[in-house]
Simulated assay, not measured.
Amino acid sequence: MPHIRPVSDLRNHFAEISKIVHETLEPVFLTKNGHGDMVVMSIEQYENIQYNNEIFAKLKEAEIEANSSDVRFSHDEVFKQLRQRLRKEEKG
């Protein structure tokens, strides 16, 4: 269930809101005059969202590239290439 609080709680109950966002890793939605105004979340959760968005963007990019080419690689081929790259980086 989402946590919805009036924006005044940010000032009056900051410690409680901070505890909620850190313990639950869920955002607190703040309202102003009965309408949504802001979202407060922990830095950890914000970074998780950013990381997931980056992964999604990379997967979308890979999907677009895959749709524009018939070239496919097996699991073994991909990991063989990755291992070779890692060895080169370790040496160089």
Score class of each variant (00 low, 15 high):
Met1Gln: 13
Met1Thr: 12
Pro2Val: 05
Pro2Gln: 12
Ile4Ala: 07
Arg5Ala: 05
Arg5Glu: 12
Arg5Asp: 00
Pro6Lys: 10
Pro6Asp: 15
Pro6Met: 01
Pro6Val: 02
Pro6Ser: 14
Pro6Phe: 02
Val7Thr: 14
Val7Gln: 05
Val7Met: 11
Ser8Ile: 07
Ser8Thr: 13
Ser8Glu: 12
Asp9His: 08
Asp9Pro: 05
Asp9Cys: 08
Leu10Gly: 08
Leu10Arg: 02
Arg11Ser: 07
Asn12Lys: 14
Phe14Asp: 10
Ala15Pro: 01
Ala15Lys: 09
Glu16Ala: 10
Glu16Cys: 01
Glu16Leu: 08
Ser18Cys: 06
Ser18Phe: 12
Ser18Gln: 14
Ile20Tyr: 02
Val21Trp: 00
His22Ile: 10
Thr24Met: 05
Leu25Pro: 00
Glu26Gly: 06
Glu26Pro: 01
Glu26Thr: 06
Leu30Phe: 07
Leu30Gln: 04
Leu30Met: 10
Leu30Thr: 02
Thr31Pro: 02
Thr31Met: 06
Lys32Met: 04
Gly34His: 13
Gly34Gln: 08
Gly34Met: 02
Gly34Thr: 09
Gly34Phe: 11
Gly34Trp: 07
His35Thr: 13
His35Ser: 06
His35Ile: 06
His35Pro: 00
Gly36Ser: 01
Asp37Cys: 06
Met38Lys: 12
Val39Lys: 06
Val39Pro: 07
Val39Arg: 10
Val39Trp: 03
Val40Trp: 00
Val40Leu: 15
Met41Glu: 12
Ser42Tyr: 10
Ser42Trp: 11
Ile43Gly: 09
Ile43Lys: 12
Ile43Trp: 06
Glu44Trp: 11
Glu44Ser: 09
Gln45Ser: 12
Gln45Lys: 14
Tyr46Pro: 06
Glu47Pro: 01
Glu47Phe: 03
Asn48Cys: 12
Asn48Leu: 10
Asn48Ala: 05
Ile49Tyr: 11
Gln50Ser: 09
Gln50Asn: 08
Gln50Met: 12
Gln50Lys: 15
Asn53Glu: 08
Asn53Lys: 11
Asn53Ala: 11
Asn53His: 08
Glu54Asp: 10
Ile55Leu: 13
Phe56His: 11
Phe56Ile: 14
Ala57Ser: 12
Ala57Pro: 00
Ala57Ile: 04
Lys58Met: 04
Lys58Tyr: 02
Leu59Cys: 15
Lys60Ala: 05
Lys60Leu: 15
Ala62Tyr: 04
Glu63Met: 03
Glu63Ala: 10
Glu63Tyr: 03
Glu63Gln: 07
Glu63Leu: 05
Ile64Thr: 15
Ile64Asn: 07
Ile64Leu: 08
Ile64Gly: 01
Glu65Ile: 11
Glu65Met: 08
Ala66Trp: 02
Asn67Ala: 11
Asp70Met: 03
Asp70Leu: 11
Asp70Phe: 03
Arg72Thr: 12
Phe73Asn: 06
Phe73Ile: 05
Ser74Val: 09
Asp76Met: 13
Glu77Lys: 04
Val78Leu: 15
Val78Cys: 07
Val78Thr: 14
Val78Gly: 01
Phe79Glu: 14
Lys80Pro: 02
Lys80Leu: 09
Gln81Thr: 08
Gln81Cys: 02
Arg83Val: 01
Arg83Phe: 01
Arg83Ser: 11
Gln84Asn: 13
Gln84Tyr: 07
Arg85Phe: 08
Leu86Asp: 12
Leu86His: 10
Arg87Asp: 09
Lys88His: 15
Glu89Gly: 00
Glu89Ile: 15
